[in-house]
């Protein structure tokens, strides 16, 4: 893999469709290494990746890949590889023919050898000569990644690359992304699943509602996420006494008593999680149910935006 020839830079990039703002004033610089683009569905991740990949012009702002704009610039694909979110592949081609075509279109000096290497990287040895139409979703995904990697790009963009993969394939893909990045490439992949990003990337860009909500190394983002106010629904043998005891805790911001139990607003997850067992033990109350009631990804992201 050749060393990276630059960075991916976005300055005040926005993209709108009519009145809908899909990406709103995003600035970021991506260097060599694996970066996760995290956000719920509809956050603008795909739009952002499409702009980076030259398949959509920014409505406003400046976007360059290796120092050059990607829009209306096919030459950029000599250094850029893309695995788009749509899973379609020409089902009548075998994996070998599909990746070989990609190698030839990239005008590689030895397309057969490059094809062999890319298919080997994606562990498709046993299925090279089968038509893509007979592949499982995960295998098709690996064939698409092989086609995107065949020219050893220094910038690799992947939109939801783990979709349809089984756990073993995911581990293999994660390893591949790391190896690609270790060789000096810029690897950016999108995901709406926290754990995927946690396992793969050191750096995270969090998008919510078209905006860049948080940016940095994974640990600091994770800390932001766990140290936010949490709401729990609790049912116990004595809700009223438990409410009184909880209100004395500094980690608890408020308690509501309702028909179906308590609704507790905790200052941060960790402190509350440690305090609750201590309180119920001390007060000799039996807890029947503790349910985090706002753990949806959207609420986590909404909190990050508010920060």
């Amino acid at each position: 893999m050749p060393p990276s020839t630059g960075t991916v830079e976005l300055h005040g990039v926005s993209r709108w469709y009519g009145n809908v703002v899909a990406v709103n004033d995003v600035s970021m610089t991506l260097g060599p290494g694996v970066t996760g683009l995290l956000g719920p569905n509809g956050a603008g991740k795909t739009t952002l990746l499409q702009m980076m990949a030259g398949f959509l012009p920014p409505s406003r702002g400046e976007l360059t890949v290796a120092g050059r704009p990607s829009w209306r610039n096919p030459e950029i694909y000599r250094v850029l590889g893309l695995v788009a979110d749509r899973e379609a592949v020409p089902g009548f081609l075998t994996a070998w023919q599909f990746v070989l075509a990609s190698a030839r279109l990239h005008e590689l000096p030895d397309p057969e050898r490059a094809t062999e290497r890319a298919l080997g990287q994606m562990e498709l040895h046993d299925a090279w000569h089968r038509r893509l139409g007979t592949y499982s979703k995960g295998m098709r995904q690996r064939a698409r990644v092989a086609a995107a990697l065949v020219h050893q790009p220094t910038v690799l963009l992947l939109d939801e690359p783990f979709n349809g993969m089984d756990p073993r394939q995911r581990l293999h893909m994660m390893d591949l992304l790391h190896r690609t990045a270790d060789a000096g490439a810029i690897v950016l992949f999108s995901s709406h699943i926290l754990e995927e990003v946690e396992q793969v990337s050191g750096t995270v860009q969090v998008m919510v509602a078209g905006r860049l909500a948080a940016s940095g190394d994974y640990r600091s983002i994770r800390r932001l996420m766990t140290h936010r106010p949490h709401v729990f629904a609790i049912r116990s043998s004595d809700d009223r006494r438990l409410a009184v005891a909880l209100m004395a805790e500094p980690a608890v911001a408020g308690v509501d008593i309702g028909q179906s139990g308590l609704t507790v607003r905790a200052g941060d997850y960790g402190t509350f999680a440690r305090a609750l067992p201590r309180i119920v033990q001390r007060e000799r109350i039996r807890v029947r149910q503790v349910t985090p009631s706002d753990e949806s990804l959207e609420s986590v992201f909404a909190y990050l935006v508010a920060q």
């Binding site: 096919p74 000599r78 850029l80 279109l105 990239h106 005008e107």
Partner: peptide, 15 residues
């Protein structure tokens, strides 16, 4: 329509 055009367009071949 089926999106496979991306595989051709994400290459440096002149349009």
């Amino acid at each position: 329509d089926d999106g496979t055009i991306v595989h051709v367009l994400a290459t440096p071949v002149a349009r």
